[in-house]
Design a protein around this nucleic acid. Structure first.
Length: 266
DNA sequence: AACGAAACCTGCGCGC
DNA sequence: TGCGCGCAGGTTTCGT
């Protein structure tokens, strides 16, 4: 589900709801998602801050950080004592009688607990590349020069650049006029610069719109993202390109559906 | 270094 | 209505 803009939206929403609240009890309904040891260390801890790195959410407590990855379908909801719904796997009982519920249809989401001092020096955060906002366009170009695989697989590689997923990779490549299967070392300098500069603009626009929704994404307040209305190519196979009117094509790159315009992208 | 396939899960839409 | 298939915004692992 979520890429950087969606996780950013979730982070901001949860910050407004959770800061200052203490976890009093945790119920785990899917054992593989969180161990009892992790849960026990979280009891009595207070939400001090919530951060984000790439697609990871970082809940900052007194002694520990809880690192949450939503993968394809993870979502958070705040509720009172409503019945537990089908795909709610973890319920955090909070000091104001609310419950924070982790909902994940496909159960792919992950939780990692770290001592505060080790959050950024151990997996999963220590191997992440820079976010687009902090990536130097020229450094990105130099990196691409050394890589002999499709540019799309590089944009999706979190070790190289953090936060971009399948939707925004397609949108960024469209904005840079580069086809998804072009080899990274065949990307020109100005195209690499466009990817970073225009990519930042695309991500920021999406954040301002509250994240993308294709089919199932809903933020923790139940607000549906609106960025879908702005997608230029992703999920638009056989539709007309907004720029040139040509038909949007689909190919598989890196095992992922990739949408592009043959006329606008080379 | 790079690729493809499979794995982790569930649900949806489609053609028959 | 039911069945099987392909597909889904992510990531890791394993074999070639």
């Amino acid at each position: 589900m979520p890429e950087l803009p969606e996780v950013e939206t979730v982070k901001e929403t949860l910050k407004r709801q959770l800061l200052g609240l203490t976890i009093e009890k945790i119920d785990i309904f899917y054992d593989k998602m969180m161990t009892p040891e992790v849960a026990s260390k979280l009891i009595g801890q207070t939400f001090l801050d919530i951060d984000r790195l790439g697609k990871y959410l970082i809940f900052n407590f007194e002694d520990v950080d809880l690192i949450s990855h939503l993968r394809m379908e993870g979502r958070y909801f705040l509720k009172y004592d409503e019945p537990i719904s089908k795909h709610e796997h973890i319920i955090f009982h909070l000091s104001n009688k609310q419950t924070l519920r982790y909902h994940d249809t496909r159960k792919f989401g992950t939780f990692d607990l770290r001592e505060t001092s080790e959050t950024f020096t151990t997996k999963p955060l220590n191997g992440l590349g820079k976010e687009p906002f902090k990536m130097d366009p020229n450094a990105f170009y130099l990196t691409l020069q050394k890589i002999n695989r499709p540019i799309k697989s590089v944009l999706l590689d979190q070790k190289i650049i953090a936060g971009i997923g399948n939707i925004y990779a397609d949108e960024i490549l469209f904005s840079a006029h580069v086809r998804p299967n072009r080899l990274a070392n065949q990307v020109l300098k100005h195209e690499a610069h466009w990817m970073i500069e225009r990519g930042i603009g695309i991500l920021q626009t999406a954040i301002e719109a509250g994240g993308t929704t294709i089919r199932t994404y809903v933020s923790s307040l139940g607000v549906t993202g609106r960025f879908q209305q702005t997608l230029m190519v992703h999920q638009r196979k056989n539709e007309q390109c907004y720029i040139c009117g040509d038909v949007i094509k689909k190919m598989v790159v890196n095992g992922r559906s990739s949408f592009y315009c043959e006329t606008c992208q080379n």
